[in-house]
Simulated scan of single mutants.
Amino acid sequence: MAGLKSIIGLAFVLAIGFLFVILSCALYNNWWPLLVVATYVLAPLPNEIFGRCSEEHGSELWNDDDNSSSFTDAGRFITGILIVTGFCLPFVLAHAEVITVPAMIMSIIGGVLVYGTIIAYTHFFSREQDISV
Rank of each mutant, 00 (worst) to 15 (best):
V37R: 02
N47V: 14
V13N: 01
I78V: 13
A43W: 11
L42V: 09
G9P: 09
L35Y: 05
A43Y: 07
D65Y: 05
R52V: 06
G110K: 04
R76A: 14
S24T: 00
P33I: 01
G9W: 10
P46C: 08
A43I: 09
I119T: 10
I78L: 14
V98I: 14
W31M: 12
I119F: 13
T79Y: 06
Y121C: 04
A2D: 01
A11I: 06
A120F: 01
R76W: 13
C88V: 02
W32D: 02
D130Y: 10
T72D: 11
P46K: 07
G3S: 06
Y28Q: 08
R52A: 11
F71P: 05
P46G: 10
G110H: 07
Y115I: 11
I7A: 13
P90F: 00
G17M: 01
N30A: 07
S126R: 10
Y28K: 05
P90I: 01
F91R: 00
F77L: 13
P90G: 00
I78M: 09
P33L: 02
V112Q: 01
S107T: 15
V13L: 10
P44N: 12
F18D: 01
L35R: 01
V98N: 04
W31F: 15
W32C: 03
I108D: 06
I83H: 04
Q129W: 12
V92Q: 02
R127L: 10
M106F: 14
S6E: 15
F20L: 07
E60R: 15
H95W: 11
W62D: 15
I22R: 04
I118G: 05
